[in-house]
Design a binder for these strands. Structure first.
Length: 108
DNA sequence: AAGTACCGTTAAA
DNA sequence: TTTAACGGTACTT
């Protein structure tokens, strides 16, 4: 039984994608974080595989998933500075949302 | 610091 | 069908 929903993805991948979608905005989690969440604390590598495939790069914030060292994961070395840039933007957005909830004043 | 073992998917032979 | 490779972490040396 693999991929009872969309063919091409397995239950494992769905679990990884789901866990990645649950990562709060402006925050980052490690592959192990996802691995433990899906019930495979030792499958951090397999998690990286599912993210590497990332069938929905627009919906799945794979950039929020980094290594436990704080280094950006990626393949064969590193991805691109875009990842850090993207994370910085998300952080800004999260900060803005926090301000709105704090006093709902005009930000900028 | 370096090497090894673990998990799950994909590509190739 | 079987083998090789990719990708991150923890443990051991």
């Amino acid at each position: 039984m693999s991929g009872k929903f969309s063919k091409g993805l397995t239950d494992f991948e769905w679990a990884v994608l789901k866990a990645t979608l649950e990562i709060p905005l402006g925050e980052t989690r490690s592959y192990k974080w996802v691995a433990e969440r899906i019930g495979r604390p030792q499958a951090a590598r397999a998690v990286g595989q599912a993210l590497r495939k990332n069938p929905y790069p627009i919906i799945i914030p794979c950039h929020r998933v980094i290594k436990a060292n704080g280094d950006p994961g990626g393949y064969g070395g590193k991805q691109d500075p875009r990842k850090a840039r993207l994370l910085a933007q998300e952080r800004d957005i999260a900060a803005r949302i926090r301000l709105l909830g704090a006093r709902g004043g005009g930000g900028a």
